[in-house]
Every structure is written in structure tokens, then in C-alpha cells.
Simulated scan of single mutants.
Amino acid sequence: MANNFEIKKVQDFGDLVSAPFFYIREHFRSLGKSILYFVVPLIVVAGIAVSQLVTTPFNMDPEDIESGAYIAEVIASSLSGSIFGMLAMTALAAVVYHHIKLVADETVDNNSIEPQDIWPGVKSDFLMLLLISLAIGLATGIGIIFFILPGIFISIKLILTTAVYVMEDVDFGDAFSRSWHLVTNYWWYTFGLVVIMYLFSSLMTNAITFPFIIVSFFSGFSGLEDPETMEQTLGPIFSIFYGLTTSLSYVFYTIVYICLGMHYYNLIERKEGKELTERIQQIDDSAGAES
């Protein structure tokens, strides 16, 4: 059955910015179910770990803080939050890119995609995508050490690596070189997309959590006169707030991955579609000259 959402095409900047929202509207059920099954459990654990991090000061005695138990608790919560956060982001990337890959496949009916269709790819690629993310983070970190700008440059050049790995089934090294090649001559274009998608993601998270911030402010302010009441009030409030904010930030990162997936196909069509057209034209010109 023909697909009702065209992905393999050249898109201008504005189209790419709006594409994630149209994509979610068109595929909300299948993509949402897949994220719910394969990503949300990891997001919940990451959110709980972060909430424990910010509530630790409210739950410990001064003696524990002075003895170093506080630092140990903070390190443990930070480490667990970071680990599960990275696992959640890797799972989200795997789900989104495999979903886009199925939608782009003209032999697949978009309306029949189910989580079980995505799971085999997520399961087989998860570890390698995690390693790719770690490698990109390491390369970016090294670049940032050298006056920050090299780190930003490298991160944008490699930002399509996970998409390339899923879409093209290439090996580890080829995924990096392929991303580097695709972004060449489109670095600023890609950088602009990433910045705007990050802003959208942050704004959506803040829009949902803003009412909670107001409630938290007045709840905490009302308990300032009684330290014990303030401790009992602010601890749970901060726990819920930071856990919710962390979880939503992961969920809304979906639009970033969708945009990058669309941009991958956009660059394929822009660079390689144009090259193919030029080669065909050269062949036609040669044939015409010979005749």
C-alpha cells in the first residue's frame, strides 16, 4: 500500500522545522506506543534518580552531611540518573529512527506499523547506538577542551551518525564518516535546525511545568516561617518537579530525533540525488555527442 507521508524528498529549512509536528500527528499511535513500551520505563527510572538527587539534602541529618554520606548519596544518584538517562536517549533514538525507516519504506503500509515491527531493530542496534553516543560524546568533549568551538563543530558534523547507522546498516566507522560527509557544506544549516529543535523541546517542557513552578513557589513560600514544615513541603515538591521536568525533556527530545531523521533524507536527496542527476545528464550528453 502506498505511504501517505513522503520522507525521501528535498525539504527547505521551514519544512524541516515543521516536519516533526506533522510526523507526530500522522503517526502518533504507532510511534507513541513504541515509545511507551520501549523508552518510557527507562525515562521513569531516570526521572526517579534525578528526583532523589535534589531531595537528598531534605532527607539527611546534618551529621550525615558532615560525615560525607551526603556526597556519596549525591554521587550515586547522579551516576544512576546519567546512566539511565543515556539508556533512555539511546532507546528513543533507536525507536524514532527505526520508525522513520519503516515509514520511508514504500513496501510498508504506514497504518499497519506496530511496536513489534520496531522492536527487532531496536534490540539489535541498541548496544551499537549506545557506543556511538559515547564515542560522539567523547569526541565532542575533547573538542570542547580546545576552546569549545571545535567541540560544537564536531558534534554537528557527527550528529547524523546514529541515523546513518540505522538507515543504512553500515558499520561503526562508516557511520561516522558518512555523517561527516553528509553534513559537509550543510554545517550551518544543520546547526540551525538543531538549535531551533532544542528550543522547541525546551519551550514545550517549560510550558507544561510552568504551572507546577508557580504552585511550588507559593507552597514553599508559605512554609518559610517553620523550617520543619518547609523541609516537609519542599522535599516532595522538588522531587516531583525535577522528576517531571527530566522525564518530559526526554520525551520532547523526540522532535529533535524526528527532525534529524528527516534531515538525513533531505541531505541524501540534496547531495546524492543531485549527483545522480548530473551523472545521468553527463551520460545523455555523451550519447548525444556520439550520435
Rank of each mutant, 00 (worst) to 15 (best):
L224W: 13
L224A: 14
L224M: 15
L224N: 12
L224I: 15
L224T: 15
E225W: 06
E225P: 05
E225Y: 05
E225I: 08
D226F: 12
D226A: 10
E228S: 10
E228N: 14
E228V: 14
T229C: 08
M230S: 10
M230T: 10
M230H: 10
E231N: 15
E231D: 07
Q232I: 13
Q232G: 09
Q232T: 11
Q232H: 11
T233C: 02
T233Q: 08
T233L: 13
L234R: 03
G235F: 08
G235M: 07
P236D: 00
P236A: 01
P236H: 02
I237F: 06
I237K: 00
I237V: 11
I237L: 14
F238I: 02
F238A: 08
F238Q: 09
F238Y: 14
S239H: 04
S239W: 06
S239P: 00
S239V: 01
S239M: 10
S239G: 15
I240K: 05
F241W: 09
Y242V: 01
Y242K: 01
G243E: 02
G243V: 03
G243K: 02
G243S: 04
L244M: 12
L244N: 05
L244H: 03
T245W: 08
T245M: 10
T245E: 14
T246P: 00
T246N: 11
S247G: 07
S247Q: 05
L248T: 05
L248E: 07
L248Q: 03
L248F: 02
L248N: 01
L248A: 06
S249V: 03
S249R: 09
S249E: 08
S249F: 06
S249M: 10
S249T: 14
S249Y: 09
S249L: 11
Y250D: 02
V251S: 01
V251K: 03
V251Y: 08
F252H: 06
Y253Q: 14
T254D: 04
T254E: 07
I255G: 08
I255H: 04
I255L: 12
I255D: 07
V256D: 08
V256K: 06
V256M: 09
V256C: 05
Y257M: 13
Y257C: 09
